[in-house]
């Protein structure tokens, strides 16, 4: 990737982020305002009013952090999954009338998800710091799981972007699919509340393992080796397949854009 391509990618990413908030009063501050709002609402509603203690945590601040960590990982993935199927069709004109390399486009939602997640994790660390719960090694152990999340995101972005051109229904399928994904993964509830008979099924859920990795790293300052290696294998495999699919199908996609 040369300097010009990098500049183009930077421009596209900047445009992509600014596009959502163009014309709003808060502008780019919304990027920060959304996770901040989410964190405060969880703290008040779940922690103070409902007094939920579903996690392993014992007080409300810990529960808030536990919930927020899980949702941070999930929201970053959801960002990519909802946008990927419309990526190429939304920029149809640009793809057909300029020399924009199509392979750059799937990087956009992944880049946006990184910005969103970065801000969320920053807030979380701040929150943990205020509570005196900050784990010194937490960030170090978190980064490998972030890498996993990015590799998964890239795989879905490339795969869904090209498939979305042929299967226009994909964009409609994503929101309900994400709701199902959220409910079948221990994100808003801990694995321990799942009945014994179903637990084996839940353990096979890669998203559950990923979220678990995030939580153990950021909240407990430990690193889960086994899930990391297993997920790395899975994510690389998926990414390889997605890139192959993207390459094979792209020229066909031009005809039906």
């Amino acid at each position: 990737m040369n300097a010009a391509t990098l500049t183009l990618l930077g421009q596209l990413l900047r445009q992509d982020l600014r596009e959502r908030y163009a014309g709003t009063v808060l502008g780019m501050f919304w990027l920060l305002a959304q996770p901040l709002f989410m964190l405060l609402v969880y703290a008040v509603v779940f922690g103070e009013i409902l007094q939920l203690r579903l996690g392993t945590a014992t007080d409300s601040a810990q529960f808030t952090a536990w919930l927020f960590t899980g949702l941070t990982a999930f929201n970053a993935l959801a960002e990519v999954l909802t946008r990927a199927p419309v990526l190429l069709t939304e920029r149809r004109e640009l793809l057909l009338n300029s020399s924009l390399p199509p392979a750059l486009l799937p990087l956009l939602p992944v880049g946006a998800s990184l910005v969103l997640e970065g801000l969320s994790v920053g807030l979380l660390l701040l929150w943990l710091g205020l509570q005196g719960q900050l784990q010194p090694l937490g960030v170090v152990f978190y980064l490998p799981f972030l890498l996993l999340r990015v590799v998964f995101s890239l795989a879905f972005a490339y795969g869904l972007a090209v498939l979305g051109v042929f299967l226009r229904d994909l964009r409609q399928m994503m929101p309900p699919l994400l709701t199902v994904l959220l409910l079948v993964s221990p994100i808003v509830y801990p694995l321990t509340v799942v009945p014994e008979t179903f637990q084996a099924w839940f353990e096979w859920n890669p998203l559950a393992q990923l979220v678990q990795g995030y939580r153990v790293a950021l909240l407990e300052g430990q690193f889960l080796w086994q899930p990391f290696l297993a997920l790395l294998l899975l994510a690389s495999g998926l990414l390889g397949a997605a890139l192959w699919l993207f390459q094979r199908l792209l020229w066909r996609a031009r005809y039906v854009l």
Binding site: A3, A4, L6, T7, L8, Q11, L12, Q15
Partner: peptide
């Protein structure tokens, strides 16, 4: 902003833009 984008699409690096 649009001019920057247009120049980037034509393969110019940041300094040239």
């Amino acid at each position: 902003d649009n001019a920057r984008m247009g120049l980037a699409l034509r393969g110019l690096a940041h300094a040239d833009i």
